[in-house]
């Protein structure tokens, strides 16, 4: 049921596959404009640090810009993040 994409070579993974507690940065959001607009307003833009606080199989609980967000799993799969300290290409 859970769609886990393997980490790509450049270290970019969908948020839904990010391990809880691991600091990461948003790289890209692959979604329609309306969705991007809503996520943007909540602080999820490329470059923002993001962390998965908990993932129980349902929606994810995220820490973004000092607030806690709930994000549906489907959407989280569309948010690509980079978990590497060195950054991703």
């Amino acid at each position: 049921m859970e769609q886990v994409r393997l980490p790509q070579t450049n270290g970019v993974v969908p948020l839904s596959a990010l391990k809880p507690g691991l600091p990461a940065r948003v790289v890209r959001i692959e979604a329609g404009r309306g969705l991007v607009g809503r996520l943007t307003a909540l602080g999820l833009v490329p470059g923002t640090p993001v962390e998965v606080v908990s993932a129980n199989g349902g929606p994810l609980l995220l820490s973004v810009l000092g607030s806690r967000l709930i994000l549906g799993r489907g959407m989280a799969a569309k948010v690509l993040v980079c978990a590497s300290q060195q950054g991703c290409d």
Binding site: L42, L71, G72, G74
Partner: peptide, 11 residues
């Protein structure tokens, strides 16, 4: 489509 679920959890 099921609407995207995004919500802020206030402290």
């Amino acid at each position: 489509e099921a609407p995207p679920f995004v919500m802020e959890l206030p402290p």
